[in-house]
């Protein structure tokens, strides 16, 4: 197994996630794309943990998983609140903050 095969898989997933964040209009789908990005980062952490033979990457991958869970909880809470007030979660309709 090469080191690069895992890093390339993570890079591909990261780029697909970035594309999703840019292209999607629905807030729930944008959150899903962010999950793709976080998973790419986790894959990198675990790959480097194996390459370096150190368990630090595992620890940080677990922390990233926990932070991602908290992020999804708060993010979906905000999406629900926006939906309740505005009856839409299309991100380009939410432009009150625009200068």
């Amino acid at each position: 197994m090469l080191v690069n095969q895992f890093l390339f898989l993570a890079a591909i997933l990261f780029c697909i996630g970035v594309y999703g964040v840019i292209a999607r209009r629905n807030a729930v789908l944008v959150l899903m794309s962010i999950e793709l990005i976080l998973n790419a980062v986790n894959l990198n952490l675990i790959a480097f943990a194996m390459r370096n033979g150190s368990p630090d990457g595992h620890t940080f991958a677990l922390y990233v998983i926990a932070v991602a869970a908290a992020e999804v909880g708060v993010g979906l809470g905000m999406v629900l609140l926006i939906y309740r007030n505005r009856k839409t979660i299309a991100l380009d309709d939410l432009s009150e903050m625009k200068g």
Binding site: A11, I12, F14, C15, I16, V18, Y19, G20, V21, I22, A23, R24, R25, N26, L29, A90, L91, D92
Partner: peptide, 21 residues
């Protein structure tokens, strides 16, 4: 209507990012 009107901009951004990485 799940995509932005200008969703095509995401493709070059993702490809450039992947090329750099």
């Amino acid at each position: 209507d799940l995509n932005n009107p200008r969703w095509k901009w995401g493709i070059p951004v993702a490809l450039l990012l992947f090329a750099a990485m």
